[in-house]
Write a protein that binds this DNA or RNA. Structure first.
Length: 428
RNA sequence: GGAGGGGUCGCAUAGUGGUCUAGUGCGCCCGCCUCGAAAGCGGGUAGGUCAAAAGCCUCGCGGGUUCGAAUCCCGCCCCCUCCGCCA
């Protein structure tokens, strides 16, 4: 959510920001219209309530019965008038709130302009794509041949976009998870969190998935339970409605969870292999910090994600999102993409394995997460950030495809061997 | 899931229809006192709205009764105890 004061005081600046991300700047005028009406009613109602409060108190002191009854009748009328305006106030309030929740975040000043994906900026490329002396095979072939990936049976059990990992396939993913967690916990200063995998609706509003993107979520009809699309949701919401001590910041959390997505919006995309499933595992990093720290925290967040790729020795690149390709909630965002030599249409493509974002106070305002800058000072909103560290299926793809050998075996990256009882190669 | 008890300002509690603009104790902060500290004494200690003050809103949440609700009624949520079920 944007700061209503900013919208009030600098509407042109907000409009310009919305225009940059491709949103309709007219929404600012709508919000302001609601805001004006709301404030007018608010003032009116609170003035009337003050009169009623005083009048009611007066009745308690009156001795004369006739006088009491007269005042009661008067107050009853006032009460009806208050109720009428209150219901209008509630309505305007709700409308303004709905609109506020549908406004995307504004881009940070240093975000490059651009309309869409095509104008994203490749910041750096790290590592050399390996040259093969044979034609590299895509992961679904490698996995099937090794008996570690079974897409058919996944589909049999749960339908399209599900798969089964078996034997060393399951173990490899588990090794990656543990390796990533250990790295972030012991080297990068994160605290591990095991959160619920289902959350209440308000949590999803807090992190920005709702109300706009509900069609991509799974939910339980009977209870207010939603399957998490990312650990970002429960972990960011850990501190909802809290006022944190400044000395507690920054908070850095890392959490491994499964993630569930309907992928309704990307129907037909990436149907081959395990690149885009309804259920996938992810190690996620989440930070809460002071506003002035967030830019620097984004830099280290990205570096923490990159460290995984560096240690796995898989070529990757960093792409900065242009304004038009930012997500709804992000003020700034960098993607980490690993090289897949055989996944793409023409042999080889970059796979997004992490998005590292700074949300500024956008989520904090929605989830009401604040901190006290100084003892005794008024609470202010924190900044939140998050980034994958990393998403498992695509890292699995990158490992299988980059480390494949001519005989169909897959060499185990050195950093993973301690997690696989020293295994050096996955063979049939 | 069933029965009973309970959710009040960081913690503990008081408050059962109108001086509650919620009292008290503890904790914390400031001051006095002291060489310093403890004790003692005095003061301050939720959030939101508003440029700010006044005012208004918030006593788990949402409705209702009433001139007036922390207080009465209804529904829901959560916690505790017991029972049932169960990794």
């Amino acid at each position: 959510m944007l700061d209503i004061r900013l919208i009030r005081e600098q509407p042109e600046l907000v409009k310009a920001g919305l225009e940059k991300v491709g949103a309709d700047p007219q929404m600012v005028d709508q919000v302001l219209a609601f805001d004006e009406e709301r404030r007018r009613l608010e003032t009116e109602v609170s003035e009337m309530r003050a009169r009623r409060n005083a009048g009611s108190k007066e009745i308690g002191r009156l001795k004369d019965e006739a006088e009491r009854e007269a005042r009661k009748a008067e107050m009853r009328l006032l009460g009806d008038a208050i109720a009428e305006r209150e219901s209008r106030l509630n309505q305007v309030n709700a409308e303004q709130q709905t609109l506020m929740l549908s406004l995307p975040n504004l881009p940070a000043p240093d975000v490059p302009p651009g309309k869409d994906e095509s104008e994203n900026v490749v910041v750096r490329v790290v590592g050399e794509p390996r040259s093969f002396d044979f034609t590299p095979r895509p992961h679904w072939e490698i996995g099937a041949a090794l008996g570690i990936l079974d897409i058919e049976r996944g589909v049999k059990i749960s339908g399209s976009r599900f798969y089964v990992l078996k034997g060393m396939g399951a173990a490899l993913q588990r090794a990656l998870i543990t390796f990533m967690l250990d790295l972030h916990i012991t080297q990068h200063g994160y605290t591990e969190i095991y959160p619920p995998y289902v959350v209440k609706e308000h949590c999803l509003v807090g992190t920005g998935q709702l109300p706009k993107f509900g069609e991509n979520l799974y939910r339980d009809i009977e209870d207010d339970f939603w399957l998490i699309p990312t650990a970002e949701v429960p972990v960011t919401n850990l501190h909802r409605d809290e006022i944190l001590e400044a000395s507690a910041l920054p908070l850095r959390y890392v959490s491994y969870t499964p993630c569930f997505r309907r992928e309704k919006m990307s129907a037909g995309r990436d149907v081959r292999g395990i690149k885009r499933g309804h259920q996938f595992d992810k190690v996620e990093m989440v930070k809460l910090c002071r506003p002035e720290e967030s830019a620097a925290e984004l830099t280290t967040l990205l570096d923490n994600a990159e460290d995984v790729a560096r240690k796995l020795q898989i070529p990757y690149r960093i792409v900065q999102m242009c304004a038009g390709d930012l997500s709804f909630t992000a003020a700034a965002k960098y993607d980490l993409e690993m090289w897949s030599p055989a996944c793409g249409e023409n042999g080889g493509e970059w796979l997004e394995v992490s998005s590292c974002s700074n949300f500024h106070a956008f989520q904090a305002r929605r989830a009401n997460i604040r901190y006290r800058p100084e003892p005794g000072a008024r609470p202010e909103y924190v900044h939140t950030l998050n980034g994958s560290g990393l998403a498992l299926p695509r890292v699995m793809i990158a490992v299988l495809e980059n480390y494949q050998n001519a005989d169909g075996s897959v060499t185990v990256p050195e950093v993973l061997r301690p997690y696989l009882r020293g295994l050096e190669r996955i063979t049939p």
